[in-house]
């Protein structure tokens, strides 16, 4: 299949391939060729795109072969792109709306405060993943690969379990949904309706993207780690 056709099918994949370092303008090259050129693991790329594209997609056998490091590297890239680009852009838009407004100023300030609250919640959630969950996952991966437990890895392995993560993987999207509900249902739009509308559309897109993102975590990463945990327990 041509890479261009994949993107035509689902434009939400544009930021995804970008996170892999793949740039647009690939002409008629196939997915295979593009991945090879960019040194992207083809299998992982396919799993990822499928999980993004199809809500019910659930990879089984393929799971074993996806390198954990690749998944983690990808998730980290996604996190960074949320915090550095998407969220910051929305914040900027809200701020410039606030600067323009006169009588609506009070309401826009409320929206800005709310969004900032959301931002810090998201940041906290991401930090927790990067500081606790990902190091744990990498430790598990290392144990499996080397087939032995170093003292340090042992400590990490015993301090956490993916089950814990599964349980606490709470809904960061709740506030985001509330914000768009408030903006759609309860606020009369300010004078600059164009900007206001574009903020709402951005919120929808961010929400959709975050849903995709959590699907990768829930359907690719977690099942894989559960399998690995089991085999570690069998090994030792």
């Amino acid at each position: 299949m041509k890479m261009a056709d994949v993107i035509q099918m689902n434009y939400m994949l544009i930021p995804v391939i970008h996170r892999f370092g793949i740039e647009l303008g690939f002409g008629d090259k196939t997915v295979d060729q593009v991945c090879e050129e960019n040194e992207v693991d083809l299998n992982f790329f396919l799993q990822l795109v499928n999980a993004y594209h199809d809500q019910d997609y659930f990879p089984k056998e393929e799971l074993q072969s996806i390198p954990v490091r690749e998944i983690i590297a990808y998730l980290k890239m996604t996190h960074a792109s949320y915090l550095n680009n998407t969220v910051t852009e929305i914040e900027q838009k809200i701020k410039s709306l606030e600067l323009e407004g006169s009588e609506d100023k009070k309401y826009i300030a409320l929206i800005r405060n709310f969004f900032e609250g959301y931002k810090s919640e998201l940041t906290e959630h991401i930090m927790r993943e990067e500081d606790v969950v990902f190091p744990y996952v990498l430790a598990v991966d290392e144990i499996i690969k080397s087939e032995q437990i170093t003292d340090q890895n042992k400590k990490v392995f015993e301090s956490f379990s993916i089950e814990e993560y599964e349980e606490e993987h709470d809904d960061v999207e709740e506030k985001l949904m509330d914000l768009r509900t408030i903006m759609i249902k309860y606020v009369a739009p300010p004078a600059n309706t164009n900007l206001y509308h574009s903020i709402i559309q951005d919120l929808f897109r961010l929400e959709e993207d975050l849903n995709y993102h959590s699907r990768i975590e829930d359907k690719v990463l977690i099942p894989k780690i559960v399998l690995m945990e089991k085999s570690i327990k069998n090994l030792f």
């Binding site: 409320l110 929206i111 709310f114 709740e174 506030k175 949904m177 509330d178 249902k185």
Partner: peptide, 10 residues
């Protein structure tokens, strides 16, 4: 249609 406390506050 609002779940979070901060949303309800707004």
């Amino acid at each position: 249609g609002i779940k979070s406390v901060s949303g309800l506050t707004v």
